[in-house]
Design a protein around this nucleic acid. Structure first.
Lengths: 250, 250
DNA sequence: AAGCCAAAAAATGAATGCAGAATAACGTCG
DNA sequence: CGACGTTATTCTGCATTCATTTTTTGGCTT
C-alpha cells in the first residue's frame, strides 16, 4: 500500500477538545476544517503528495461530504490544490511563490507597524520591550530556538497592536501557508545575519517608542525582506536540510 | 416578504460563456463558485439577507452538494456568513469592518507601490502617466464616473507592476468584499477632497518616476487612508442603504 | 385579543448511492 | 523481454436520501 499519509501519527481523529481561535466550532465541517488545516500546516503530509479522500474519511471517521467541503475551503486558502478529477494535493510552493508570500507578509507587518503606532499603549510597548530584552538574552546565549519563539511573539504583538482583526486574520492565513519554509527561513540565519536582525529589532523598537509610523513601516519591511532573502538563499543552498544548526544547543 | 432574492433578474442560470480569470473552470462547483461570487459581489442580494439553498439550487439548476461547497468557500472569503443550522447570509459589514478593510487595502497598495518601484519599466510608467493625464481631463470636466474608472485602472496598474501574483489575488479578494461600499466611497468625495486626491495622485506619480519605494509607499497609504476617511464620513451621513447607487455598476 | 405552547412544515447538515473519469492491472503483440 | 492496448478497479463529482434543527402555523389558555 502506498499510503501517502503517515498512519502512525494519527493526530486527527480525536475528540479535539478545544479548537483554536476560529469560528465554526459547532458544525462538523467546521471541526474538520480546523483539524485538516492544522494537519496540513504542521506538515504531516509530504509536499505535493496526493490526499485521497477515502483515507482521510477513515482517519477522521466521517463521510466524504463534509471532508470535501473542508478541502474546498483549504484550496481557497491556498494550502492545497484541487486537480479536476484527480483529487487534492498539498500545494507545492515554488521559489517564486515563497518569495511572493514573504513580500506579502512583509507588507502586512509593515502595515501593522504603521497602524500600531497610532493605537498602541505604553503598556503594550513595555511588554514588547520586555520581550525584546528576553530575546536579546537568548541571542547572547546563542539559543536559536527560544530566540525565534520570542521573535515570533514580538511580531505577533505588533500585529495585535494594529487593532485590525481583518489584518490579523489575513496575516495568520498567509503565515500558515509558508509555515514549513518559515521554519527553514529562521534557521537560515547565519551569525552575521543574526546580529543584523538584532540591530533591526532595536530600530523597530525605537520607531515604535516614538510612534513613528512611516519609519516603523519602513524598518519592518526591510527587516522582513532581509529575512526573506536569507530564506531564499538557504533554500537554494540545500534543498531542505536542517543540519547541526537545528540543535539549539550550539 | 419571503423571497429574499429577486427572481426577476436571473443573472445566474445561464451557460455562462466565458468565466473570469479564476481557476477551477472545469468542475461544476468551480463554475458555481464563480457565478455566485459575482452574484454576491454585484450586490444582487440585499445585505444581511438570508440565502436559501433550495432557491439557489433551482436558480442554478444544480443539486445542493456543489452549491454548499461553493458557499463554504465564499464564507471563507468573507463574502457571506454561515450561521449554524440557519443558512447563509450576505455578510453585513460593520463600520469597523469597512474601516479595517480600507486600512488593509491601503496597506496592500502601499506595498504594491514599494514593490513596483523595484520592477516597473519605463513603458509602464508612461502608460500610467497617460492614464493620469486622462484622469486629469475628466477631473477638469467634473466627470466623476470616468474619473473613477481611470482612477481604478491606475491603482490596478500599480498593483500589477508589483510583479506579485499572490498580492494581486489578495488585493482582488479584499476589493471584492468592499465593492459595494467602495462605490459609495468614491462618491463621497466632495469637491475639496477631489482636488486633494488629484494632488496626491501627482505625488504618487512623482515618487513612482523616481522609483522612490518608501516614499511611494507612504504617499499611497495616506492617499487611500484619506479615501477611507471620506467613505466613513459619507456612510455615517446617510446611514445605510444606497441601494439605488448600486445600480450604476461601476 | 394577546401570548404561549405544541405540532407540522421546511430548511439545514451529513451520509449514501450512482455515473464518469483516472489510475492500475493485465494480457497481447512486436 | 519490453512496449502498447485493453480491461478492471479505484477514485472523484454530483445527486439523492436520511436525520436534526429551526421556523412557522395552528390551537389553546388567560
Amino acid at each position: 500500500m502506498k499510503s501517502t499519509i503517515p498512519e502512525s501519527g494519527v493526530p486527527i481523529a480525536q475528540p479535539a477538545a478545544g479548537n483554536g481561535g476560529d469560528r465554526q466550532e459547532a458544525s462538523l465541517h467546521g471541526e474538520i476544517l480546523l483539524r485538516l488545516r492544522d494537519y496540513v500546516v504542521e506538515g504531516n503530509i509530504p509536499e505535493g503528495a496526493r490526499v485521497p479522500e477515502r483515507q482521510l474519511c477513515e482517519m477522521l471517521g466521517i463521510s466524504r461530504t463534509p471532508l470535501r467541503e473542508a478541502l474546498k475551503v483549504l484550496a481557497s486558502e491556498g494550502l492545497i490544490e484541487l486537480l479536476p478529477n484527480r483529487g487534492a494535493r498539498v500545494r507545492q510552493l515554488s521559489a517564486r511563490d515563497i518569495e511572493e508570500l514573504f513580500e506579502l507578509m512583509a507588507g502586512l507587518e509593515s502595515l501593522a507597524g504603521r497602524l500600531a503606532c497610532e493605537a498602541i499603549t505604553d503598556e503594550e510597548i513595555t511588554a514588547i520591550e520586555r520581550l525584546h530584552y528576553e530575546m536579546y538574552g537568548h541571542y547572547l546565549h546563542r539559543d536559536m530556538h527560544l530566540y525565534f519563539q520570542i521573535n515570533q511573539r514580538i511580531h505577533e504583538s505588533i500585529v495585535a497592536a494594529a487593532r485590525n482583526e481583518t489584518l490579523k486574520t489575513a496575516y495568520a492565513n498567509f503565515a500558515g501557508r509558508i509555515r514549513r519554509v518559515r521554519y527553514a527561513a529562521n534557521f537560515a540565519r547565519k551569525r552575521q545575519r543574526w546580529a543584523e536582525a538584532m540591530r533591526e529589532h532595536e530600530a523597530i523598537l525605537d520607531a515604535l517608542r516614538r510612534r513613528a509610523g512611516s519609519e516603523l513601516s519602513d524598518v519592518l519591511f526591510q527587516h522582513l525582506r532581509n529575512k526573506r532573502t536569507a530564506a531564499i538563499e538557504h533554500l537554494s543552498e540545500d534543498g531542505d536540510g536542517t543540519p547541526e544548526a537545528a540543535r539549539h544547543g550550539d
